[in-house]
Amino acid sequence: MTPPRQSDALRAAQLYYLQDLTMDAIARELRTSRSTVSRLLSAARDSGLVQIQIRSPLDTGPELESMIRAEYKVDVHVVPVVDTLNEAETLDRVAMQAARTIGPLVDSNAIIGVAWGSTLSAVSRHLTRKITHDSVIVQLNGAGNMQTTGITYASDIMRRFGSAYGARVEQFPVPAFFDHAATKTAMWNERSVQRILELQSRMSIAIFGVGSVDADYPSHVYAGGYLDEDDLDVLANSDVVGDVATVFFRADGSSDGITLNERSTGPDLAQLRQVRRRICVVSGASKINGLRGALAAGLATDLILDEASARRLVRFDGPA
């Protein structure tokens, strides 16, 4: 929205939701038509100026959020999802909530790191437009593999984030994994690569999902030809439960000695923990082991997940 339209939408929303005026009364006060007021209220909801919450006595979301917050020390949004939805439909609901949560956190002069993957692809499709100035979207990890450059897949995600926030997009044109750790070391000394790494070092927000080998809705890194059988054997022998931006970890959050990380182009987990706001989006209870590992590693400050996953995360069976 343009600033004048945003101001009108905010004023209409305040009159409607806080002062209980009718649309006709708001139209008279704003000297416009009732249909325009209706459009302003819709714009206020779509842009995140208004967020409607329904609190049912049977709703376990707040209790789950409180339990997760206490146990894992993260800000959390539990998305209510009925059991009849499949994994793709659940992902779409979670992605919609994630997009609404991310929007208000993005400001001008921000450097926002974005990982690619099935979850972030879904989130990017639900972003609402918010104009910022001098902001940058930087890709967190390379996307090339033995079958494709990965440029189209990753760039579509980055482009949607850039378009939503009026931000410059900086892609990371390297493979997801180098064949040899020495090749990565050499590339990391190249000035073109160092420019991206320097941007990543100044991120104020990082947005990512959690990859998991066992997920019912496969993570793109495991389903997209990025890992061969030898790589998967290495992960199994290292007790890996998941990854963030193609950097792997165990159930206890440790990542030392996982040789595949030496070839990965994702950010070092210690570096990621230095980012002020780290938004983790997870959909699907089958990713729970990967999520627990990511939380044990201290990778998230904010967590958005579906209700079934939240229940499994804290082993919650329902109201007493």
Rank of each mutant, 00 (worst) to 15 (best):
S7F: 14
S7V: 13
A9E: 05
A9R: 05
L10N: 07
R11W: 01
A13R: 07
Q14K: 15
Y16M: 04
Y16E: 04
Y16R: 03
Y17F: 15
Y17I: 08
Q19V: 09
D20G: 06
D20R: 13
L21E: 12
D24I: 12
D24P: 09
A25E: 15
I26V: 11
R28P: 00
R28E: 14
R34W: 07
R34K: 14
R34C: 05
T36K: 10
V37G: 00
S38E: 10
R39C: 01
L41E: 01
A43C: 02
R45N: 12
D46C: 02
L49R: 03
L49G: 02
V50F: 09
V50N: 03
V50Y: 01
V50R: 02
I52D: 04
Q53V: 12
R55N: 12
D59I: 00
T60Y: 03
T60D: 14
T60F: 04
G61F: 02
P62L: 04
P62D: 02
E65H: 10
E65W: 08
R69Q: 14
A70R: 15
Y72E: 06
Y72H: 15
K73C: 05
K73Y: 05
V74P: 03
V74D: 05
V74E: 05
V74T: 01
D75Y: 03
D75H: 07
V76K: 03
H77S: 07
V78T: 00
V79C: 03
P80Q: 06
V81Y: 00
V81P: 01
V81A: 00
L85G: 01
L85Q: 03
L85I: 03
E87Y: 07
A88T: 10
E89T: 04
T90G: 06
D92A: 14
R93D: 11
M96S: 15
